[in-house]
Amino acid sequence: MKKEVSLDLIRKWLTGWSLSRELPLPIQYKSGFKVNVGYEKQKIRYVFTAVSDDFIQLAELVDGPWIYLKVCASPEELKDHLPKKWVIQPQGYMMSCLQPMNIPNNKLHDDYRLEFEQYNSTFVVRIVTKNGEPASIGRVVLVDDLAVYDRISTENNHKRKGLASFLMKELEKIALSKGISKNFLVATQEGKSLYESLGWEFHNFYTSIVIPSEISNF
């Protein structure tokens, strides 16, 4: 069952998302937020808590490619409000965890070692092989009382070895060491089942739309 998403929660999560990528911080845009991303295929992103009049008006107004509109709603809730120029992207899922994660205190296999890095309020944990080959990586960003988990990934040839779970435990330790136990992230369809197995709960849908350029393969 989906939960309400407050503007403050979006502000904290989007701040964490921006800090993780060393991008400009979000600024308020009407009833949502705007981030000047600056990527070739993501120039700007707007994020709204619901399919509001502001969201619908912006969807009518924007004509250029690679400007993303994102909303805490399912595709079914917004598709009747969209001009045909928009393309709905793969589904995202907002997820929260307000209790210790359900992860055993397993030891990292001897074939791997941990590396740590920090910039701004972002903490990076890497799992690499003894030869330094990247295996898994993730970030946790501390924003006020919220731990935002971001860019969690495992290389294909290192999957199904429990590395992602171990990584999440290490990231959680960092948040807890700073007195933060409220956790939040946005998951892909593939990641959702992993996080649910660790004790995370579905919070709300997170749906993205974009106008791709005519020369793209979308």
Rank of each mutant, 00 (worst) to 15 (best):
L98S: 08
W17L: 03
E60W: 04
P24G: 09
A175C: 08
L108N: 11
M1H: 04
V125G: 00
T122M: 04
W13H: 09
Y39H: 05
I152H: 03
K30T: 03
K84W: 04
T188V: 12
L98N: 06
E170A: 14
G132N: 10
F205H: 06
K182F: 15
A135E: 11
E60F: 10
A59R: 02
V51E: 01
G32R: 00
D80H: 07
L19D: 00
K192Q: 12
I127L: 05
I67A: 04
Y206W: 14
K130W: 04
P26F: 03
K169N: 13
P134E: 04
I56R: 06
I137H: 07
F205Q: 00
P212M: 03
G199P: 12
K130C: 05
Y93W: 09
C97N: 10
R139F: 15
C97S: 06
C72S: 12
S136Y: 01
N102W: 03
A147D: 04
N183C: 14
S96V: 05
L58S: 12
E155I: 13
L25T: 07
W200M: 13
S213A: 13
K70R: 11
G132Y: 05
K130N: 13
P212C: 03
K34P: 11
L7T: 11
S153Y: 12
V143L: 07
T122C: 07
V47C: 14
W66L: 00
S121M: 07
R126T: 12
F33G: 05
S165W: 02
T129Q: 10
L58Y: 11
K12C: 05
V143A: 02
L142H: 11
T49M: 00
D8E: 10
E155D: 07
P75T: 05
D111S: 08
M95I: 04
S213R: 10
I103R: 03
V128A: 07
P24L: 06
G132P: 14
P75H: 00
F123I: 03
G38V: 08
K30C: 01
K12S: 06
K173E: 12
V5A: 02
L69I: 14
R160H: 14
V35I: 15
E76P: 01
V5E: 05
E115D: 01
F123W: 06
W66V: 08
T129V: 10
V148D: 00
D144Q: 04
E201H: 15
S193Y: 14
G92A: 06
S74G: 01
S20H: 05
I152N: 00
E155G: 04
E155F: 02
K107F: 09
S193P: 11
K178H: 12
N157Q: 14
L23F: 04
L146H: 03
N183T: 12
F123Y: 13
G64W: 03
A50P: 06
D63S: 07
E170V: 08
E60S: 09
F48S: 00
R21C: 09
L185A: 07
F202M: 15
P100G: 02
E77N: 04
V148L: 01
Q28A: 15
K84T: 06
Y195V: 09
A164L: 15
S31L: 07
Y46M: 05
V124T: 01
V87I: 13
D110P: 04
Y46L: 11
F218M: 10
E40A: 15
L194R: 01
S208G: 13
F202S: 10
A187C: 15
C72F: 09
P90K: 01
G162T: 00
Q99E: 08
K2G: 08
V124Q: 04
L7V: 12
L171K: 08
P24H: 03
S52D: 01
